[in-house]
Design a protein around this nucleic acid. Sequence first.
DNA 1: ATGTATATGAGAACAGATCTCACGAGGAGT
DNA 2: ACTCCTCGTGAGATCTGTTCTCATATACAT
Lengths: 133, 133
Amino acid sequence: MTQAGKTRRNTAQKDAVRRALASAEGFVSAQDLHRRLDGEGSRVALATVYRQLNALADEGEADIVSTGDEQLFRTCRQPDRHHHHLICENCGNAVEVTPDDEGWFARIAADHGYTVTRHSIEIYGRCPRCQNG
Amino acid sequence: MTQAGKTRRNTAQKDAVRRALASAEGFVSAQDLHRRLDGEGSRVALATVYRQLNALADEGEADIVSTGDEQLFRTCRQPDRHHHHLICENCGNAVEVTPDDEGWFARIAADHGYTVTRHSIEIYGRCPRCQNG
DNA sequence: ATGTATATGAGAACAGATCTCACGAGGAGT
DNA sequence: ACTCCTCGTGAGATCTGTTCTCATATACAT
Ligand SMILES: [Mn+2]
Ligand SMILES: [Mn+2]
Ligand SMILES: [Zn+2]
Ligand SMILES: [Zn+2]
């Protein structure tokens, strides 16, 4: 689904996307980010925003979370640590979290003869600033 | 993203969709199911397959799992118990699983001032029958 | 049997994401 | 600084999964 491929050159567009992503507090969609770039005068094609966001993700600089109908992106805070996200449904703000024990599903999988290749854990809620509304 | 709405009447099409879904062992896409129905001579419009699958999900008879690029459906095996799925990436077969402890994320959320509204946990791998390939 | 609310079918419409390809620009080598 | 080749970009087309529209058909309460 997601187009793959790290990027090999440093372009103005890549910098712009990286900066815009970094300046967003929470998870944002590619289209949001494109709109923000436009708003601040940075003309970057939507396709390029997608390409660079995916590249950043491939390079470990960004996290992607797939809601049912779109992908959201955010600068990764702890690139070296396996983690999941606790995400505010209202504003996209997120906290990177690590379960105390991720071993349970390896055990359950083994019980059923399954081999685990990957897992996805996402927690949605309201952040402190979005409790009302 | 997913169209909502339980259904109030018992139609031939709904029965057909329910049967086809039940006769599929693993998670299948709406389009797969539509193809299968066609194959066995049941002419049900694709839109109706979508409508009824969503209705079945609303009614608790079906589970939906969202891979990044499509939704997969399966008859729910234990409608009354909260659970998640361990899914074979190759054939769609799945086991309904329940973590030993789902309390950890409520605690973490509280630590960060978040209120939890929902969570999503999915484990992907290979089922016993799909180990090779 | 009638009447009315609801489901269906066929195709149009939609939205997110990716692809195409001609053109522009990074940057290694000189 | 100049060249050259490779890779990135822009604009718009295209793809794909899903939902919508609305005229017609059907369930089912009365
Ligand atoms: Mn991260
Ligand atoms: Mn289930
Ligand atoms: Zn928030
Ligand atoms: Zn399998």
